[in-house]
């Protein structure tokens, strides 16, 4: 049995949006400490890796490791039915062939007198985040505020079932790597650079020197260059540009893939680029304290 409830269901919506243009089918691997996804695009040029730690969920139960094969387009269609404020619970049986997705509207949506249920829920051993637990909490809050009566929220609740599939996914063993360059910058700024550079050409060079990070493109229309300098003391954390460099690195990449990666921009204010000479770049979007989505992209190399 696998069951996980994410209060901020929007994260799941955005995650699937951020990978569905790159991979069509993938496995959600569930263990007792995280859910993860690793999948390559069809051409094996890029890879997406997602990790959501169990601690980031308000209820998480995974009795034994499970691989849930899903079609990303279909899951995206179902997740579009969830509101941005909805909590999302994922459920799967150990030997089932479907993934149940429960969407619950925000608590204040509907309020009704439903006393018996709430009293029954008091003192129960329901798991945290379950419907009964929520009822107990809300009951408690109202009782504290008003001193009398019991009010319980009836959730705005939708249940969808997604058919699962058997997927033989090719898993890459990616070793822990110390990168020569780590750049942290606002995710929105990175998105804008990628979008603008695509107007001029297909191949982006990213060059990191002590001067800063230079993004450059050459095409038939002309050339474009953007220099980003370290700005570690910006007022807001998310506006900071931080560059850690052991040695200068210059690599070139297909803009088409970098553009797919920027679909994850809404997941967080910051993007982290990791680079070393002649190895794939890692483009990481941290997701609060919950986890991350990382993209790996093989470089283009002069022969």
């Amino acid at each position: 049995m696998f069951e996980a409830r994410l209060t901020s269901g929007k994260i799941l919506k955005q995650l699937i949006e951020a990978l569905k243009d790159l991979v069509q089918e993938a496995n959600i691997d569930c263990s007792d400490d995280e859910i993860s996804i690793q999948a390559m695009d069809n051409s094996h040029v890029s890879l997406v890796a997602v990790s959501l730690r169990s601690g980031g969920f308000d209820h998480f139960r995974c009795d034994r490791p499970l691989s849930l094969g899903f079609n990303a387009t279909n899951m995206g269609k179902i997740l579009k039915c969830a509101g941005n404020e909805d909590a999302i619970t994922l459920k799967a049986e150990d030997d089932g062939d479907s993934l149940s997705m429960v969407f619950e509207g925000p608590n204040q949506d509907r309020i009704a007198d439903f006393g018996e249920f709430a009293r029954g829920a008091r003192g129960s051993d329901s798991p945290p985040g379950s419907r009964r637990e929520k009822c107990w909490k809300i009951d408690f809050n109202f009782a504290t505020m008003r001193g009398v009566g019991v009010l319980v929220v009836i959730f705005d609740r939708k249940i969808y079932e997604l058919k699962l599939m058997d997927i033989d996914s090719e898993q890459l063993g990616i070793p822990d790597t110390d990168y020569k360059v780590t750049i942290q910058m606002p995710s929105g700024e990175f998105q804008r650079i990628i979008r603008d550079m695509q107007v001029l050409g297909d191949t982006l060079s990213i060059s990191c020197t002590k001067e800063g990070v230079k993004f450059g493109v050459q095409g038939d229309l002309g050339t474009g260059n953007v220099l980003i300098r370290q700005n570690a003391h910006a007022e807001k954390d998310e506006d900071r540009v931080m560059i850690e460099m052991e040695e200068p690195v210059e690599l070139t990449f297909a803009l088409r893939y970098l553009n797919f990666f920027t679909k994850a921009t809404n997941l967080g204010p910051t993007v982290i680029l990791n680079m070393s000479p002649d190895v794939p770049i890692v483009v990481e979007y941290p997701i609060g304290e919950t986890g991350h989505i990382k993209y790996y992209l093989a470089p283009k190399i002069d022969e």
Partner: peptide, 14 residues
């Protein structure tokens, strides 16, 4: 033009 490599050049399939 530089050549586009795949990730299989850099990482092993498990």
């Amino acid at each position: 033009d530089p050549r586009q490599y795949t990730l299989l050049k850099f990482y092993e399939l498990n």
